[in-house]
Nucleic acid binder design. Sequence first.
DNA 1: AAGTGGTCTAGACCACAAC
DNA 2: TTGTGGTCTAGACCACTTC
Lengths: 241, 241
Amino acid sequence: MQNSIVEKLPRYEQVRYDLQQKLIAQIWGSDESIPNEQELADEYQVSVGTIRKAIDLLVADGLLVKQQGKGTFVRYPDFSSSLIRFFRYRNSTGKQIIPEGVVHKVTYLENGDERINGVMHRLIQAPLIYIERTREIGQKVLVSEKIWLPKEHFFQLLNIPLSNFDNLLYPMYRRECGQLVVSAKEQLSFLTNYFDTYLPLQQTESAVKICRFAYGINGELLEYRESYGRASEFFYETFIH
Amino acid sequence: MQNSIVEKLPRYEQVRYDLQQKLIAQIWGSDESIPNEQELADEYQVSVGTIRKAIDLLVADGLLVKQQGKGTFVRYPDFSSSLIRFFRYRNSTGKQIIPEGVVHKVTYLENGDERINGVMHRLIQAPLIYIERTREIGQKVLVSEKIWLPKEHFFQLLNIPLSNFDNLLYPMYRRECGQLVVSAKEQLSFLTNYFDTYLPLQQTESAVKICRFAYGINGELLEYRESYGRASEFFYETFIH
DNA sequence: AAGTGGTCTAGACCACAAC
DNA sequence: TTGTGGTCTAGACCACTTC
C-alpha cells in the first residue's frame, strides 16, 4: 500500500492493486474464500463500500467470484473463450472431446530470434525459451503450437523433463515461474501451403493460424504463441457486447 | 416503473430498465446529455448512489458514456468488434478502407423459410423479410450477405426503395422500425466449394462464412445474417478477458 | 463561481447459505 | 442462529468542465 506508484490513485484502486498482488503471491488458494468485506475494511482502514468497489473490479477481471451468503473466492482465469478451443472434434457419439497437450521440445535460444523478438517488441537478441507442443486426440494431432517465452521470467522451465509438463501450460507457468496469465490477444488468419512436422496436411488443404499474445496482471507480455490447425475443422463463436 | 415484470427487481434494475426504455424511445438524442444524477434521483425517488449503479450498468452495456464535469451521454453501440469488419482491405498507400454497403434485394417471405426459422427458433412458417446485400470497395465485392428479419418487427422496410437503404443497416432498423440492436453472437467457419452470385470465387478458393445472430435490448433475436468472404482476405483479432 | 460526475463514508436492512 | 454478500441511503468532499 505504501508503494509510490499507487499513491495518487483512489483508495479502491490501491486496495485492488494490493489484493491483486496477494492473488499473484497465492496468499489464498484456488477456490478458497478470501476474508469477508468487514475484515478487509478494517485491515485497509477504509469503509466497506470502498472494499466492495475494489472487489467488484477484480470480479470484472475474472480474478474473484462472489457468492451471496458464502463469501468471495479466488478464481484464476481459464481462457475458455480462446480461439484454439474452437477446433471442432467430436467422438462417435457426438460429444465434444478435450484434446491432450503434449510437449515435444523445450529449448533455450540464447541469442533469441529476430522475428519473434520483433513481434514481441523486445531487443533483437534477447534470450528466449522455445517450446513445440501439440494438442492431440488419441494419436491424431489437432493443433500444432510453437511457443516463445522471455527467458528472464521462465528459466525454471528449462529444468523440467518433457514428461513432467502438464496438460495445461498456464497453471504450470504460475506454479513453476510465478507468472500469472490474465489476458490475451489472438489473431486469426488463413493459410494455404502450410507445412508442419507435427500436423500432416494434404497438398490442397488449408490451415488456420492463430497468433496469441498472452499478458500478465500488469499488462506485460509473457508469451507469444503460434497455433496451426486444419481450416476445415475450425469453428469459432464470439459474443459482441 | 410500475411494470409487473420488474416489480421484484432491485431499485437500480428498475431504474436501469426504465432508462433503457427511454433510450430506445430516443427521448434523448445521440451524444446528448441525459439529466444529471441528482435530477434522476429526485425523479425516481431513490438516492444518487442507486442512480449511479443503474447508470454504471448502462455504461457497461455501451449505451451511455460518462464524462467527468460534463455529464452522461447517449452512445449507441457501434459493433466495432464485429468479425466482418476484419476482412483486410487496404488501398495503395496501405490505409484501411471502409467498404460500402449495397442492398440488392428486399423480399417478403410470407411462409418463411424452414431452415432459417429453425436456426432462429421460430415457427417453421413464420413470415420473414429477406435481404441480399454486399459490401464493396470500388466495384469489387468484399462480402456477400444474406439477411433474414422477423416480419412483425421490420415490415416497414418493405416500403423503402432499394436506393434509399443506408450504408449501415442498424441505424436504419432503429429509425424506421424502432428496433435497437445491442448485442450479437457470431460464428465463423471455413468453406470450400462455395458459390455466390455476388462474390465470384476461383474454383479452388476457400470462403469464410460468418453467421450472426443480432439481439435487441431485451435479448430477443432481431436478425439472422450470413456473410461470406474470401478466406485469403480474412484477418481476425480478438481480446480475451 | 456553478455544475457535473468521482470518491468515500457509516451506517441500515435484506437475502442467501451453513450449521 | 450466525455470517456472508446484496441493496440502499444521505450525506461529505474532490476533480474536472464550463462560463
